[in-house]
């Protein structure tokens, strides 16, 4: 998780303290491979496929999925990034800042878009992402890939591809990176 995002999550100015390693680097690697194969299988190939990683945690996963799909099928699937800050429903309730400008240099109309994020929690980021995607064209279908589904959904949203289902407490924090998946807590300094 990006430092900026952490700084904007309650308790503000807290630090992440790791407790348990849930996935080792190898496990993350294997999950990426499996999800890449599942995406190709589900869509009967790579025709009309596009990958969109959510800022910030989904961007590197989108990049790795793209590499793996390219290795398996030989096709470089169009890959972009999406920042949903201006579509969130909690603007004004907590600090919300964009991380980086959205970069989708291709038309989404008629494409099957795979949205990619690191952690699926309340589902509100994905809701915002669906609204944002609509401004870039009418996708034929939108699918959702996440490295970790930690439960606690507040909206009727479900992932199509999951790296790991991870039961958590609401107040826990899940940190996802190429170095692994770690469960921990935000602690006030």
């Amino acid at each position: 998780m990006a430092e900026r995002e952490r700084a904007l999550a309650p308790p503000y100015g807290g630090v992440f303290v790791a407790r348990t390693t849930v996935m080792a680097p190898d496990d993350v690697q294997r999950a990426v491979w499996r999800m890449a194969h599942e995406i190709i299988e589900r869509n009967h190939g790579t025709d009309g496929l596009a990958l969109v990683g959510l800022q910030t945690g989904g961007v590197w996963i989108a990049g790795r999925l793209n590499e793996t799909i390219q290795t398996v099928s030989g096709v470089d699937v169009p890959t972009g990034t999406l920042d949903v800050a201006f579509y969130r429903d909690d603007i004004g309730l907590r600090p919300v800042l964009p991380e980086a400008a959205t970069d989708i240099p291709f038309d989404l109309s008629g494409q099957t878009v795979v949205l990619i994020d690191d952690v699926l929690f309340t589902g509100r980021t994905v809701r915002a992402a669906l609204n944002a995607l609509a401004d870039y064209g009418r996708a034929r279908a939108v699918q959702l890939a996440v490295m970790v589904d930690r439960g606690h959904r507040e909206l009727p949203i479900r992932p199509d591809y999951v790296g790991k289902n991870l039961p958590t407490r609401r107040d826990e924090m899940v940190d996802v990176s190429e170095a692994g998946v770690v469960l921990g807590d935000m602690v006030k300094k």
Binding site: F86, A100, A101, T102, D103, N131, D135
Partner: peptide, 20 residues
């Protein structure tokens, strides 16, 4: 830094976001 994001918004076919 934040302006970069709004330059991207301004370049879209529909240059509008629901933020405010």
């Amino acid at each position: 830094r934040v302006t970069d994001s709004f330059v991207e918004v301004s370049g879209r076919a529909i240059p509008k976001v629901p933020a405010l």
